[in-house]
Measured scan of single mutants.
Amino acid sequence: QEELVKAFKALLKEEKFSSQGEIVAALQEQGFDNINQSKVSRMLTKFGAVRTRNAKMEMVYCLPAELGV
């Protein structure tokens, strides 16, 4: 569980995922086979993730800066 949270936060820091499906796929690539869209959705809510525009003006998920991840 701890490893999943770390990987999840690291992915969001990249600010390149525009959908929950993309986050699920990226986590599965890292070996988290039991991850699915509903789990990702709950984690996004739990950590207060928001959708914002990145440098390329794409809408992407990211974590609020005050979490200091």
Rank of each mutant, 00 (worst) to 15 (best):
Q1T: 12
Q1A: 11
Q1P: 10
Q1L: 11
Q1S: 12
Q1G: 11
Q1R: 11
Q1V: 11
E2D: 13
E2T: 11
E2W: 13
E2I: 11
E2A: 12
E2K: 10
E3M: 12
E3D: 12
E3C: 15
E3Y: 10
E3T: 11
E3N: 12
L4Q: 02
L4N: 00
L4T: 03
L4D: 01
L4A: 03
L4C: 15
V5S: 09
V5T: 10
V5L: 12
V5F: 15
V5I: 13
V5E: 15
K6E: 12
K6P: 04
K6N: 11
K6I: 12
K6Y: 10
K6F: 10
A7D: 01
A7M: 06
A7L: 07
A7Q: 06
A7T: 06
F8S: 00
F8D: 00
K9F: 15
K9L: 15
K9E: 07
K9M: 14
K9D: 03
K9N: 05
K9A: 07
A10T: 08
A10D: 09
A10E: 10
A10K: 09
A10G: 09
A10Y: 08
A10L: 12
A10Q: 12
L11H: 02
L11R: 02
L11C: 04
L11P: 00
L12A: 01
L12E: 00
L12W: 03
L12P: 00
L12K: 00
K13S: 10
K13W: 10
K13H: 09
K13E: 08
K13A: 12
K13P: 01
E14W: 07
E14V: 06
E14A: 13
E15R: 07
E15W: 06
E15M: 12
E15S: 08
K16D: 03
K16Q: 07
K16G: 04
K16F: 05
K16W: 04
K16L: 07
K16A: 09
K16C: 15
F17P: 03
F17V: 04
F17S: 04
F17N: 02
S18A: 11
S18I: 08
S18G: 13
S19M: 06
S19I: 05
Q20C: 06
Q20V: 15
Q20T: 13
Q20K: 15
G21F: 13
G21W: 13
G21C: 04
G21Q: 14
G21D: 12
G21I: 12
E22C: 04
E22S: 10
E22K: 07
E22D: 11
E22Y: 04
E22T: 06
E22Q: 15
E22I: 03
E22G: 08
I23S: 00
I23Y: 02
I23R: 00
V24I: 08
V24Y: 05
V24F: 05
V24H: 04
A25W: 09
A25R: 13
A25M: 12
A25T: 10
A25F: 10
A26Y: 12
A26N: 05
A26V: 08
A26K: 08
A26T: 05
L27I: 02
L27P: 00
L27Q: 00
L27A: 00
Q28K: 14
Q28S: 08
E29D: 10
E29F: 08
E29Q: 12
E29M: 11
E29I: 11
Q30Y: 07
Q30A: 11
Q30N: 05
Q30V: 07
Q30E: 06
G31D: 02
G31T: 01
F32G: 00
F32V: 01
F32M: 02
F32E: 00
D33V: 14
D33W: 13
D33N: 13
D33Y: 13
D33G: 13
D33T: 14
D33P: 14
N34G: 12
N34V: 05
N34R: 09
N34P: 04
N34E: 11
N34W: 14
I35D: 01
I35G: 01
I35P: 01
I35M: 09
N36V: 05
N36C: 04
N36R: 06
N36T: 14
Q37S: 10
Q37D: 11
Q37V: 14
Q37H: 11
Q37F: 09
Q37L: 13
Q37T: 12
S38D: 14
S38R: 15
S38H: 13
S38T: 11
S38N: 12
S38G: 11
S38L: 11
S38F: 13
K39Q: 14
K39I: 14
K39F: 12
K39W: 14
K39D: 15
K39L: 15
V40M: 03
V40Q: 00
S41K: 15
S41E: 14
S41D: 13
S41R: 14
R42G: 10
R42P: 01
R42S: 12
R42Q: 14
R42L: 13
M43Q: 01
M43L: 13
M43C: 02
M43Y: 05
M43P: 00
L44G: 00
L44T: 01
L44K: 01
T45E: 13
T45K: 15
T45I: 15
T45Y: 10
T45S: 11
K46N: 10
F47S: 05
F47A: 06
F47H: 07
F47T: 05
F47E: 04
F47I: 11
F47P: 01
F47R: 01
F47M: 09
G48T: 02
G48D: 04
G48W: 03
G48R: 08
A49P: 02
A49Q: 02
A49Y: 05
A49F: 04
A49S: 04
A49V: 07
V50H: 07
V50E: 06
V50S: 07
R51W: 10
R51E: 04
T52I: 14
T52W: 06
T52S: 11
T52H: 12
T52N: 08
R53W: 08
R53P: 09
R53G: 04
R53V: 13
R53T: 10
N54D: 03
N54Q: 02
A55K: 10
K56C: 03
K56I: 06
K56A: 12
K56Y: 09
K56L: 09
M57N: 15
M57C: 04
M57P: 03
M57D: 15
M57R: 08
M57S: 09
M57Y: 10
E58F: 05
E58P: 03
E58N: 06
E58V: 10
E58T: 05
E58L: 07
E58I: 09
E58Q: 13
E58C: 02
M59N: 05
M59I: 10
M59K: 05
M59T: 06
V60N: 02
V60P: 02
Y61A: 01
Y61M: 02
Y61S: 01
Y61W: 15
C62Q: 08
C62P: 01
C62V: 13
C62F: 06
C62E: 04
C62I: 12
L63Y: 04
L63I: 08
L63W: 06
L63V: 04
P64V: 05
P64A: 06
P64I: 05
P64G: 05
P64E: 04
A65H: 11
A65P: 15
A65I: 11
A65T: 11
A65Y: 11
E66Q: 09
E66V: 06
E66N: 10
E66I: 07
E66M: 07
L67S: 14
L67I: 14
L67K: 13
G68D: 15
G68A: 08
G68P: 15
G68C: 06
G68E: 15
V69N: 15
V69C: 09
